[in-house]
């Protein structure tokens, strides 16, 4: 079952102008009304909360209305439709997109992926003892770098029953668990994606069900720092980071957003295959990150103390 990852996240909001401004400043590009794309065309879609084209909302505070998963081929769509229609309604739209619901009640959809293949340079670094990452005279610090999100990386749900939720994605859609926080939730990746996780979940009371955060991959840690610093400079509210997670190894920087969910920049996530053995630890501050920093005002060193020069 060749599911790649989240292609689109659809929100129903009461503050669409604020959300549009946020996503543009975050680095996505508007392509069509309310559709904000990363470089590979994965997207956040904004609609007014009363838009009749939206699936109904959950009874909670979340403004996420639909998660659209990208798959590689029609055979995968056919397999999903055949299996899920055994115990729930699956609507096949004229475009071929399937729309249904998961076992926690989140509205989900499946489509032949809208992703375009990227061919872009990685972050290049120079490490003593290794071949240089950059040629002589090639500069690493570019204040004017575009710092655009490359692709929709992962989503994290608050769910009332993490085992039931995880089993749906494992048993029905072929996801595998890469790592797990005991009593919190598992990290999952689908078969057509080697990223450590495209889906993580956090066990919560049912009145909290919703989207905890979404994340896009950046080129690397430098671009992540640059993009996050620009957000802070524009007055946006940093929530957590920059730092580096342990599970997944990804660098992170989370911001509050007018969509009522955290929005993360991430970079340099681990890749896995079938040889990987799942790790499991209790959630803790130590387990949640390798290190954590906070942005501070810029500063410059000088020579003598002020007034003595």
């Amino acid at each position: 079952m060749r599911i790649i990852g989240p292609d689109e996240l659809v929100f129903g909001v009461d503050n669409i102008l604020d959300c549009q401004a946020f996503l543009a400043d975050y680095g996505l590009t508007e392509n069509g009304p309310g559709c904000f794309e990363a470089l590979d065309r994965t997207a956040i879609v904004l609609r007014d909360k009363d838009d009749p084209s939206l699936p109904p909302p959950l009874a909670t505070a979340t403004r996420l209305r639909e998660t659209v998963w990208g798959v590689e081929d029609q055979a995968t769509l056919d397999a999903i439709a055949a299996d899920l229609s055994r115990d729930r309604d699956v609507v096949v739209e004229p475009t071929g997109r399937l729309r249904t619901v998961d076992d926690a009640g989140f509205r989900i959809a499946f489509q032949i992926t809208r992703r375009v293949k990227l061919d872009l340079p990685p972050e290049r670094i120079n490490s003593p003892g290794a071949a240089p990452g950059r040629a002589a005279n090639e500069i690493g610090a570019d204040e004017d770098a575009a710092a655009r999100p490359r692709t929709l990386s992962h989503i994290v749900y608050f769910v009332p029953d993490m085992d039931r939720m995880a089993n749906f994605y494992i048993d029905r859609l072929g996801f595998v668990i890469t790592d797990k926080f005991t009593n919190t939730g598992p990290f999952l990746r689908p078969q057509a994606n080697d990223d450590h996780h495209v889906l993580f979940m956090i066990q919560t009371p049912d009145y909290m069900q919703g989207l905890e955060h979404l994340a896009f991959h950046m080129q690397g840690p430098t671009e992540l720092m640059l993009a996050g610093s620009r957000m802070v400079k524009k007055g946006y509210e940093s929530f957590w980071g920059p730092g580096r997670h342990k599970f997944g190894s990804n660098w992170f920087w989370y911001f509050n957003s007018p969509m009522g969910a955290h929005v993360e920049f991430d970079a340099d996530m681990d890749k896995h295959d079938g040889d990987w053995t799942m790790r499991e630890v209790p959630m803790s501050k130590e387990a949640a990150q390798l290190f954590l920093f906070e942005n501070v005002a810029k500063w410059a060193p000088g020579g003598p103390p002020p007034g003595k020069g």
Partner: peptide
């Protein structure tokens, strides 16, 4: 505030 200015919005998870 939320869209119509009637509630304080938590921009972390949408609490009103």
């Amino acid at each position: 505030l939320n869209g119509d200015g009637t509630r304080i919005l938590c921009a972390a998870h949408g609490a009103l």
